[in-house]
Structure formats: structure tokens, C-alpha cells
């Protein structure tokens, strides 16, 4: 099985084996799943009391919280988990160089090529350890959307104490709208992400076990 992983090589002598998903990443990933499972459906419960897209309304079955008060309780408890985990993830990604290694560089030509291959149903996923350009782009977008959710969320939560931030975002209702758009982006990502993980179950297993061992760092790039 491991022979199919193009980049799998014996670990350098004297160096700890590097997994595709080191333990901290796996813990933070699944913690984030919990945070999303709290924040998104509780946010829908809060949204319902004053809709942003007229006619769009979330049925009780998909909400967390039977009415606004429990939805708010969940949302304002989940926010700590989301923020703590998100900050840890960003700090880890920057400090260990994981973001640079996995998400950069990202070239327009590569994105075009990946899209073209995808449309021809030539999706290369033998090597889980290297993200293609579209994957890189999606991960960057969803990380930015997550950061944006915290910023717009703060603006909605404290529009007087953070009135400068609210003005920067274009006003209270615009901040709400941006918070809603951020949710839609994240939900869109989750749908694609989960669908692909189910299509290629090895990726799901890798997020539990750590996945294949990595080659030495490609610092030359």
C-alpha cells in the first residue's frame, strides 16, 4: 500500500518520523469539527429571529437550540472553543511551517490545470501528502473565512465597544451579512470537503491515524 505514495521514503536516520497529519493537527481538526457542529446550527437558530435573505429560514430539524435563547447559549459557548482552537491552529501552522509547506506556492496556472483535469475526471489523488492547487486555494479560503467569522462575530457581539470595527465593516447590518456570507462559504467548503473525503476514504483515515510518513522537507521550493 505504502508503495503507492510517491513521496514516501524511509525517514532520515536520527530524525523523528513525520506524519502527513501530526497529532496536534488531528486533534485540532476534530476539535474544529465539534466547534463547527456547535457554531453553524446554533447560528442558524439565531439567524431565524431576523432573516437576512428574505424567505430563507432554517427548519427546526437542522438548528441547534429550539429557540433563540438556547441557540445563543450554544453559540456563545462554542465561540470559545472555536477561537482557542483556531488560534492554536494558526500559531501551529505558522510556527511549524506547515502552512508554507502545504498551502504555498499557489499559482494561477496550476489552478487552471487542476480544474481542467478535474473536468476531465482525471483527479490525481494517489499522493495524499501534496495538495493540488484547488485544494490549496480552498484551504486558504476557508481559513480566511474562519478568521473573518471571528472578526465579524466580534463586531456583531459588541457593536458599541468595537464601533470602529463595525464602521470598517460597513455598519452593523453589513457586519451581520458578512457573518452570514462567511457561514455560507464555510458550509460550502464543508460540503465539498466531506464529499471528497467520503469519495477517497483514505483521506479520512489519514486524519485519524496520521496518514503516510512524509519525505524530508522540500525546503528548496
Amino acid at each position: 500500500m505504502s508503495a503507492t505514495y510517491a513521496t514516501t521514503q524511509p525517514a532520515a536516520p536520527g530524525r523523528a518520523r513525520r506524519r502527513m497529519h501530526p497529532l496536534p493537527v488531528r486533534i485540532m481538526h476534530w476539535t474544529n469539527v465539534v466547534a463547527m457542529a456547535i457554531m453553524i446550527p446554533s447560528g442558524w437558530g439565531i439567524y431565524n429571529d431576523s432573516v437576512i435573505v428574505h424567505g430563507l429560514h432554517f427548519p427546526e430539524e437542522v438548528r441547534l437550540g429550539a429557540w433563540a435563547a438556547p441557540s445563543l447559549l450554544w453559540h456563545f459557548a462554542g465561540m470559545w472553543l472555536l477561537m482557542a482552537n483556531g488560534l492554536a491552529y494558526l500559531a501551529y501552522g505558522i510556527a511549524t511551517g506547515r502552512f508554507r509547506e502545504r498551502l504555498l506556492p499557489i499559482r494561477v496556472a496550476d489552478i487552471v490545470q487542476t480544474v481542467r483535469e478535474t473536468l476531465r475526471l482525471h483527479l490525481a489523488h494517489e499522493d495524499l501528502t501534496t495538495y493540488n492547487a484547488v485544494q490549496k486555494l480552498l484551504y486558504i479560503v476557508v481559513i480566511l473565512a474562519g478568521i473573518s467569522q471571528v472578526v465579524t462575530g466580534l463586531a456583531i457581539w459588541k457593536p458599541v465597544q468595537f464601533s470602529g470595527l463595525v464602521s470598517l465593516l460597513g455598519g452593523f447590518q453589513t457586519a451581520r451579512l458578512l457573518h452570514f456570507i462567511g457561514m455560507a462559504v464555510i458550509v460550502g467548503f464543508v460540503v465539498v470537503h466531506v464529499a471528497l473525503a467520503l469519495l477517497v476514504p483514505r483521506t479520512l483515515a489519514a486524519m485519524v491515524t496520521g496518514g503516510p510518513e512524509l519525505a524530508a522537507r522540500r525546503d528548496a521550493r
Binding site: 462559504v185 458550509v187 464543508v190
Partner: peptide
Amino acid sequence: AGAGLIGAVAAG
């Protein structure tokens, strides 16, 4: 926002 959400719904 509507378009984004509709997209998400259509996909999921």
C-alpha cells in the same frame, strides 16, 4: 450571500 448559500445547498 444568497448565491453562495444556494450553491452550498445545491452541492450538499
